[in-house]
């Protein structure tokens, strides 16, 4: 039997899947195809794919050692032979530092993302499903965290815990979960009264089961969308902490720290701060585009009901 791409496609998009796996893959395929029809989202995915490659093999792509100082070659402008994007105030190659810096920068983002989304999801969906005083307590705690400006709270936390990459991640995570809890709770309230939840109660599903198997999967879509839209903010907060010297410590080539060190020479040597700044912008934009696309694809209100 030959397996042609067309038959694969037919198998994936089958209206009558024959197994659990096929049904799941079919749903994923539909989402993927819908996302593929969204040009901006495709652009976002493209940029992120390139970025992932850089994260994976960046240090090998780097033409120079990102930490090697060369005081003879300080502050060379972009385009100088051997230093495509110029050098910083210690003569380090900016291109190399950008390529190597992708890993710590995106590492922060990834760590924050995997800790923030589940925490917010659990708090929000439990509060929404159970209601009563548990809801009140969880939401007041959320409100307290929401009441502080994010960067200030993160600053205070890092100040207390001491500077460093791990503490920066912890601080950002602790300050960014409340909106997710709010979002998950709003989604939960919207589905709490629906008949399928009532039906699940009627066959005796326990509250934890209700939360995990019935409510959370429905909140997941909007939380993921929110997360992609928030990625930009996380990068900027991380950069902000790095910029204030409270994130990654020198000579680590984290992008925020690079912007920070470039600040001192900004007026005379603009490229030192601008190059990592542009990199942050591009990544933030890519996540934003992906988030927009996901929102359009995942939002059931926009799916045609014909």
């Amino acid at each position: 039997m030959t397996v042609s791409p067309a038959s694969w496609r037919a198998w994936l998009l089958s209206e009558a899947p024959a197994s659990r796996l096929q049904a799941r893959l079919g749903r994923a395929t539909r989402l993927g195809l819908a996302l593929g029809h969204h040009p901006l989202a495709v652009a976002g995915v493209g940029v992120l794919a390139v970025l992932l490659v850089v994260v994976a093999i960046g240090p090998w792509l780097a033409p120079q050692d990102p930490a090697a100082q060369n005081l003879d070659a300080r502050l060379l402008p972009p385009g100088t032979p051997g230093f495509f994007l110029g050098t910083d105030e210690l003569g380090r190659d900016i291109l190399s530092r950008l390529l190597c810096g992708a890993r710590p920068t995106l590492g922060i983002v990834a760590l924050v993302a995997v800790s923030v989304a589940p925490l917010g999801l659990v708090v929000g969906s439990v509060a929404g499903t159970v209601g009563g005083w548990i809801d009140a307590v969880l939401m007041r705690v959320t409100d307290i965290f929401l009441a502080f400006p994010r960067l200030i709270l993160a600053l205070a936390l890092v100040g207390a815990l001491g500077p460093g990459l791990e503490n920066a991640v912890l601080a950002i995570a602790l300050t960014s979960w409340p909106p997710y809890a709010r979002l998950a709770r709003a989604e939960t309230l919207a589905v709490r009264r629906s008949d399928f939840i009532a039906a699940a109660r009627l066959y005796g599903a326990s509250t934890p089961r209700l939360v995990v198997r019935h409510v959370m999967p429905l909140c997941l879509g909007s939380v993921i969308v929110r997360l992609t839209l928030d990625m930009a903010g996380i990068i900027l907060t991380a950069a902000g902490l790095g910029f204030l010297g409270l994130g990654a410590q020198p000579p680590s080539p984290e992008w925020g720290a690079m912007v920070s060190s470039g600040r001192k020479v900004l007026l005379d040597h603009w490229w030192v701060a601008t190059m990592p700044g542009v990199a942050i912008c591009v990544v933030a934009l890519a996540f934003n585009l992906l988030g927009d696309g996901l929102r359009d694809v995942l939002d059931p209100k926009d799916t045609p009901t014909r």
Binding site: S194, D195, F196, A198, A199, A200, L202, Y203, H214, P217, L218, P300
Partner: peptide, 13 residues
């Protein structure tokens, strides 16, 4: 057991 009015709302999407 109970069957609900709206078959669109009584099954988890």
């Amino acid at each position: 057991q109970m069957v609900f009015q709206d078959p669109y709302g009584s099954l988890h999407p």
